Amino acid sequence: MGRSQETFNKKEREKKRQKKAKEKMERREERKDQAVKGTLDNMMAYVDEFGNITDTPPDPEKKPKKIKAENIEIGIPKREEEEEVVRTGKIDFFNTSKGFGFIIESGTGDKYFFHVNGLIDAVDEGDKVTYDLEKGMKGMNAVNVKLVE
């Protein structure tokens, strides 16, 4: 007797091919069923009075009152003017050749950097000054430095 021409590998490949074809057919049938179920009514979503998404339509009795368009303000509300704090301090260090120095704030003892470009009056070490603060690259810097008489 002759041996069968089908080897184990051929049988396994055929089984895999048939299994794939069966799975493909099942997926096709499942998509057809979903297409029938996926009508527009099933896909609708509603937003309730609290802003949550639901699948039930809103109750007409809970409908919010009408808002007139002219009552809606668009923009940023005006802020009240903030009182500008006058900061005072004493010049702790000042290098005239390099054009920078440090001010120690009265009361808190915080140190702030200042540059010659931020000076309004000529100052020296130990002078009492008033100044404003602004954000710099490495922290807060003193600007508009004025000498206190």
Rank of each mutant, 00 (worst) to 15 (best):
G2A: 07
K90I: 11
K135H: 03
I72H: 01
V123D: 08
G118V: 04
M140L: 11
K19I: 07
E125F: 02
S106A: 03
I67R: 05
Y131F: 15
K20L: 15
N144R: 04
A69V: 05
K138G: 12
F114D: 06
G75W: 15
K98T: 05
E26P: 00
V85A: 11
T96F: 00
M137I: 11
R28Y: 13
N141D: 10
G51D: 05
K11W: 14
N117E: 11
G136M: 00
I74M: 13
G107K: 12
N141R: 09
F113Y: 15
M1G: 09
G118P: 11
N117Y: 04
K22R: 05
G118Q: 14
I67L: 05
G89E: 10
Y112P: 05
L40C: 02
V116R: 14
T56W: 06
E70S: 02
D33H: 04
D48A: 03
F102N: 09
P57E: 14
V86R: 04
D132S: 08
R27G: 03
P57T: 09
K20Q: 14
N117Q: 05
G38N: 03
I76T: 08
P58Y: 11
I53P: 00
Q18N: 04
I120R: 12
D127Q: 04
F113I: 04
E26M: 12
Q18H: 01
F93D: 08
N42G: 08
V123P: 09
E6F: 10
K22N: 05
I91D: 07
A69S: 01
E73A: 13
A21E: 15
K16L: 15
H115C: 11
N144V: 00
N117P: 01
S106Q: 13
E84L: 05
V47C: 06
F114W: 13
M44H: 04
L40Q: 09
G75F: 15
G51E: 08
D41P: 00
E73I: 13
Q18A: 08
T56R: 13
I104A: 12
R31V: 02
D110G: 06
K90W: 06
D121I: 00
E73Y: 01
